[in-house]
Deep mutational scan, measured.
Amino acid sequence: TGEEYIAVGDFTAQQVGDLTFKKGEILLVIEKKPDGWWIAKDAKGNEGLVPRTYLEPYS
């Protein structure tokens, strides 16, 4: 389980392990790392690192 967040901007993977997403996408945050990069999963089940500055809590 995780917390749902909504993307407030588009993000394109910079390196292997990053997750590309579009503004408005709902992501499930699995782990919040202290460096500001969180592990998240998208609706298709893809998992990767995302920058927390692009996310806001979804309710």
Rank of each mutant, 00 (worst) to 15 (best):
T1I: 10
T1V: 11
T1L: 12
T1N: 15
G2W: 10
G2S: 12
G2K: 09
G2H: 12
G2P: 15
G2V: 11
E3S: 11
E3Y: 09
E3G: 08
E3N: 09
E3K: 08
E4G: 06
E4Q: 15
E4F: 15
E4P: 15
E4M: 13
Y5R: 01
Y5S: 01
Y5C: 03
Y5V: 02
Y5W: 13
I6V: 10
I6P: 01
I6K: 07
I6C: 06
I6T: 05
I6L: 08
I6G: 02
I6N: 02
A7H: 00
A7G: 05
A7E: 00
A7C: 08
V8H: 06
V8A: 07
V8Y: 04
V8K: 09
G9I: 14
G9L: 15
G9K: 15
G9C: 11
D10W: 04
D10C: 05
D10F: 04
D10Q: 04
F11G: 02
F11S: 03
F11D: 01
F11W: 12
F11R: 08
F11L: 04
F11N: 03
F11P: 01
T12H: 14
T12K: 09
T12W: 13
T12L: 13
T12A: 08
T12V: 10
A13T: 05
A13Y: 03
A13H: 04
Q14F: 09
Q14I: 14
Q14S: 11
Q14N: 12
Q15L: 11
Q15V: 10
Q15N: 13
Q15I: 12
Q15S: 13
Q15C: 09
Q15M: 12
V16N: 11
V16F: 13
V16L: 14
V16K: 15
G17R: 06
G17T: 09
G17Y: 05
G17I: 04
D18H: 15
D18R: 15
D18N: 10
D18F: 15
D18M: 15
D18Q: 15
D18S: 11
D18W: 15
L19C: 02
L19P: 02
L19Q: 01
L19S: 01
L19F: 03
L19M: 07
L19A: 01
T20I: 04
T20N: 09
F21I: 13
F21G: 02
F21L: 05
F21V: 11
K22C: 07
K22R: 10
K23L: 08
K23N: 06
K23A: 09
K23T: 10
K23W: 06
K23D: 04
G24A: 04
G24W: 06
G24N: 07
G24K: 03
E25S: 09
E25M: 08
E25N: 07
E25L: 02
E25T: 08
I26C: 05
I26N: 02
I26M: 07
I26S: 03
I26F: 05
I26P: 03
I26T: 05
I26W: 06
L27P: 00
L27Y: 02
L27R: 00
L27D: 00
L27T: 01
L27S: 00
L27V: 07
L27W: 01
L27C: 02
L27E: 00
L27Q: 01
L28Q: 09
L28E: 07
L28R: 10
L28W: 13
V29Y: 01
V29W: 00
V29R: 01
I30K: 06
I30S: 06
I30A: 03
E31F: 11
E31Q: 11
E31A: 11
K32A: 05
K32I: 06
K33P: 07
K33H: 11
K33I: 07
K33L: 12
K33Y: 09
K33M: 09
K33S: 09
P34F: 11
P34A: 15
D35V: 03
D35G: 08
D35A: 04
G36L: 06
G36C: 06
G36F: 05
G36V: 04
G36D: 09
G36M: 06
W37T: 08
W37E: 05
W37K: 10
W37N: 07
W37M: 11
W37C: 06
W38E: 00
W38L: 03
W38C: 03
W38P: 00
W38N: 01
I39W: 15
I39K: 10
I39T: 09
I39E: 04
I39N: 06
I39D: 03
I39S: 06
I39Q: 08
I39A: 06
A40H: 00
A40S: 03
A40I: 03
K41F: 08
K41Y: 08
K41I: 13
K41M: 11
K41P: 00
K41N: 05
D42H: 03
D42Q: 03
A43H: 14
A43I: 10
A43P: 09
A43L: 12
A43F: 09
A43M: 13
K44R: 14
K44W: 15
K44A: 14
G45Y: 04
G45V: 01
G45E: 05
G45F: 04
N46Y: 08
N46S: 08
N46G: 08
N46L: 10
N46I: 09
N46V: 09
N46Q: 11
E47G: 06
E47W: 09
E47C: 14
E47F: 12
G48C: 02
G48K: 01
G48F: 03
G48Q: 01
G48W: 02
G48D: 00
L49S: 12
L49M: 08
L49R: 14
V50A: 10
V50W: 00
V50S: 02
V50E: 00
P51Q: 09
R52Y: 14
R52A: 15
R52V: 10
T53P: 06
T53F: 12
T53W: 15
T53I: 13
T53R: 13
T53V: 15
Y54E: 07
Y54N: 06
Y54P: 02
Y54H: 15
L55M: 05
E56Q: 09
E56F: 08
E56N: 06
E56C: 09
E56H: 10
E56M: 14
E56P: 01
E56R: 11
P57G: 05
P57A: 10
P57V: 08
Y58M: 14
Y58W: 13
Y58V: 11
Y58R: 08
Y58Q: 07
S59L: 12
S59N: 11
S59G: 14
S59H: 15
S59V: 13
